[in-house]
Amino acid sequence: MSSVAPAAAKGARVAGKANAGSDRSDLMLDVQGLKTYFYTEDGVVKAVDGVDLKVKRGETVGIVGESGCGKSVTSLSIMRLVGAPGKIVEGRIIFDGTNLLELPEKEMTQIRGNRISMVFQQPTTCLNPVFKIGDQIAEVLNIHQSLGKEAGWKRAIELLRMVGIPEPQKRVHAYPHEISGGQAQRVMIAMALACAPELLIADEPTTALDVTIQAQILDLMRDLRDKTGTSIMLITHDLGVIAEMCERVVVMYAGQVVEEADVYTLFARPLHPYTQGLIGSIPVLGKVREHLDVIPGTVPNLLNPPPGCRFEPRCQACQGAARERCKVETPPLREVEPNHWVRCWMYEK
């Protein structure tokens, strides 16, 4: 359906970005030192613990990591949708020059769904079962563009057509349970793009779908991005999706960013032992390997994270005296080569 040649398009955009890269005003989103904690009965869970993140205009940034590493909480924090017992404790989320964390709730509602939209993992449960699809799309248009019911529905049909739903004038009357998961995700995307947002946060948008549908949804997102120029923050645990969609990648582990680089560098020369492990664990089609590398151990308990480097208990990179430092001191996120940031003591000069 989407016939854009991805590689070519991506190459062109990356080049374009490189020229304007130093321009401060070109930053769409700048997350600084974000800390989101959950205050549970058993103690404080530091789900996001000092995350820094930048998304430039028109750029697609991937956030990758295992489940439970804080990817989703980061995205919900940006939308300020973290519910009790979670709380954003520290940090700044600067979106187009304003710190979202300082905005009154009323102004925040004018940003959500309008300038920043979100697409979630489970499309079928994300749509309200008692309202028609048309109503749910028209509602966004009604609150942000004051479109009346009739105009809203008309626009909803256009949006459904845009996201590739067949017979949109019929489908608009359907209830969520009457459509498939893939179609529901298209509806979610239509709803997210209804107000032409500047930033789209997609939280595992394809994880819950069949493999063939996954590819279609990714094609659609790429296609729409190229048409609208929206910045995308794509959260996934699937490095394949990252490779296909993103220009820059942020790797998260246990609530922290451990590595950040452009997609080519990251795949060609991953520096952090965790990233190396992640990339080593991808099966490569057509290539016979003795065994897939697996990262031993499990994600640490965020209730009681290791005192030093959070990856230390699972790290196989170095042994001996160097290791002692990892156990007690958390490494900072450092720019070890231009635009390549790593949180690891190995790369300390």
Partner: peptide
């Protein structure tokens, strides 16, 4: 439920999220 989160993410004010969705 997830759809309540969606309603919030749409930019609805809390009162509408609660009373309608």
């Amino acid at each position: 439920q997830d759809y309540v989160r969606t309603a919030r993410a749409k930019g609805l004010i809390e009162r509408v999220v609660i009373m309608k969705h």
